[in-house]
C-alpha cells in the first residue's frame, strides 16, 4: 500500500448560487501521478484549484468540506495560504511566464520565499530547476532573454521549472498540454515520468490517452460529481460505472 498524500472529504464548492462540486471524496498517493478526466465544465479544474486554495482569489467561491495534505487541514484558520502554495505548485492550461527574463522567471519563487541566501545559491536553484524541467540545454546561453520569447512548449516547461524552483511536494497541472503541439506534449509527458520520482503530481486532462499514458490512478468527474476513481488500468479496461464507460468509449463528452 502506497502512502496517501492528499485526502479530500465531502468537498462541496459553490460559485455564488451555482454548485460546482458535490460531495467529492478521494485520496491521492504520494509520488504518483493521479489523472482527473471528464467533459468540460465537470468540476475537475475546480477540484484541483481547491488543493492549493487558488479558489480563494475568486470572491464568490465558497468551499465546504475538508482537504488534508499529510494529515493537515489546508482550510484550517491558522493555515498560511502562501506557505501552502509554496508546497503545492501549479502549472496552468496556458503557459503564463512573467514578462521577465528566463532566469528571473525561475528565480521568482525562491526570491519571494527567501530560499536562497546567496546569489550563487539562487543560480544553482535556477539551473537545477531548468535541468529538471528539461529546458536547460535549450536556454543555457540566453537566460537573460525574455521568458515570453520562447516557444509555447518551452514556455510551459519554463512554467514547470518555475513551479519546482521552490521544491514543492505536489505539482498540480491543469490541462498543461492543451495549448501545445504533439511533439511538445510528448516532451511534457516524458518529463512527468521523471518528475514523479520526486513529486506527487495531479493532472487534469482532456486527453484520455494522456491519462492512460502518464497516470497510475484516474478519477472521472461528471456534472460536478466524482463518478469513479480507481487504478488507471481498471478505469480504462473495466470501469464499474456506465457513465465512465460511455465517456471513455467516446459516446459523450
Amino acid at each position: 500500500m502506497k502512502s496517501i498524500k492528499i485526502k479530500a472529504d465531502n468537498l462541496n464548492v459553490h460559485y455564488g448560487e451555482k454548485q460546482a462540486l458535490f460531495d467529492v471524496s478521494m485520496y491521492m498517493e504520494k509520488k504518483q501521478v493521479t489523472a482527473l478526466i471528464g467533459p468540460s465544465g465537470c468540476g475537475k479544474s475546480t477540484f484541483i484549484r481547491c488543493l492549493n486554495r487558488m479558489n480563494d482569489v475568486i470572491d464568490i467561491c465558497k468551499v465546504q468540506g475538508k482537504i488534508e495534505i499529510d494529515g493537515n487541514d489546508i482550510y484550517a484558520p491558522d493555515m498560511q495560504v502562501e506557505q501552502l502554495r509554496e508546497r503545492v505548485g501549479m502549472v496552468f492550461q496556458k503557459p503564463n511566464p512573467f514578462p521577465k527574463s528566463i532566469f528571473e522567471n525561475v528565480a521568482y519563487g525562491p526570491k519571494i520565499h527567501g530560499i536562497a541566501e546567496h546569489k550563487s545559491d539562487l543560480e544553482e536553484i535556477v539551473v537545477n530547476s531548468l535541468k529538471k524541467a528539461a529546458l536547460f540545454d535549450e536556454v543555457k546561453d540566453r537566460l537573460s532573454d525574455s521568458g515570453t520569447s520562447l516557444s509555447g512548449g518551452q514556455q510551459q516547461r519554463l512554467c514547470i521549472a518555475r513551479a519546482i524552483s521552490v521544491n514543492p511536494d505536489i505539482i498540480l497541472m491543469d490541462e498543461p498540454c492543451s495549448a501545445l503541439d504533439p511533439i511538445a506534449t510528448a516532451r511534457i509527458e516524458e518529463l512527468m515520468g521523471d518528475l514523479k520520482t520526486e513529486y506527487t503530481i495531479i493532472i487534469v486532462t482532456h486527453s484520455m490517452q494522456q491519462a492512460a499514458r502518464v497516470s497510475s490512478r484516474t478519477g472521472f468527474f461528471h456534472l460536478g460529481k466524482l463518478v469513479e476513481v480507481d487504478k488507471t488500468e481498471t478505469i480504462f479496461s473495466n470501469p464499474s460505472d456506465q457513465r465512465t464507460q460511455d465517456y471513455i468509449t467516446g459516446r459523450f463528452g
Partner: peptide, 26 residues
C-alpha cells in the same frame, strides 16, 4: 492578463508581491 496574477499567487506570492514584482513591471 489574469493568468499572470494566478501564476504569481500559485507561487505563494502575496498580493503586494504580485503587484510590485509582476503587475507593475508588466
Amino acid at each position: 492578463p489574469q493568468s499572470l496574477r494566478e501564476g504569481s499567487y500559485a507561487m505563494g506570492a502575496t498580493k503586494r508581491e504580485t503587484i510590485v514584482k509582476v503587475l507593475l513591471p508588466a
